[in-house]
Amino acid sequence: MRIHALVAIGASLLMLSGASFVHAVKPEDNQATREKGKQIYEHACLLCHGVDGRGDGPAGWFLSRYEGPRPRDFRGGSYKFRSTPSGELPIDQDLFRTVTQGISGHMPPYSGLSEEERWQVIAYIKSFNQGFKGPVSIALLLPNPPGPPSAAGIDNGRTVYIKYGCQNCHGDNGYGDGKEALDGNLKDTYGHTISPGDLTERASFKGGSSAQAIYRGIMTGLDGTPMPSYADTIGGNDKDVWDLVYYILSLSQERQ
């Protein structure tokens, strides 16, 4: 009897702690969470993204000065780093990834915030855009990379690179010096000149430089920029995309 009671109490405690652990990592998106997120935002994010989330914080201008990209406008602006189709809002995990990893060359990684704090600030950031109150966007299926890249695959990747028109912006050798870039034709949706990624330098991959991150960037595009989504037009031709991913990765050396 006593043992049973102890076991029961122990079990319920375990369940409780388990439950509270789950809540601690990703808190429910409610007023209290957003309030905590606001406090974090005002210290960590406001200086670039501005008090209203318009991307016009007091330090926001200097990053690219007269050019782009400027800090993200959270109210209606397009989100670059998504796993969702073009024109859609990101899912929470996309925002979490960007907050954690930062954006190479532009935004520092905020892995110094605890997981819970990151979720709290994401809840607050989402409150700037009414669209997040609607149905959650469906992420594209992002498969795991197939086996190791083959020489033939990388050769095919080069062919795909040309077929997909990558060289128009990223240049024939991937230096980010394509004709459209050199002619200054590439603008973001605000009309600011922006430069395409240098595919020979992994620090230039703003959405991450893993094979999967590059695959995601190609399939979803970077909204707000000229980089289009390839998911629909090439639908079903997954092998070509992976070959392209491995070709792109072959242009840069792995460091660290």
């Binding site: 073009s86 024109g87 028109g165 989504s229 629909d232 037009t233």
Partner: peptide
């Protein structure tokens, strides 16, 4: 190859690559 980049009020409504024959 074309891309069709539809912009509404500084936001991307849709930006899709239009590969030849895609």
């Amino acid at each position: 190859m074309h891309n069709t980049n539809i912009i509404v009020e500084n936001s991307t409504a849709l930006n899709v690559a239009m590969v030849a024959g895609g």
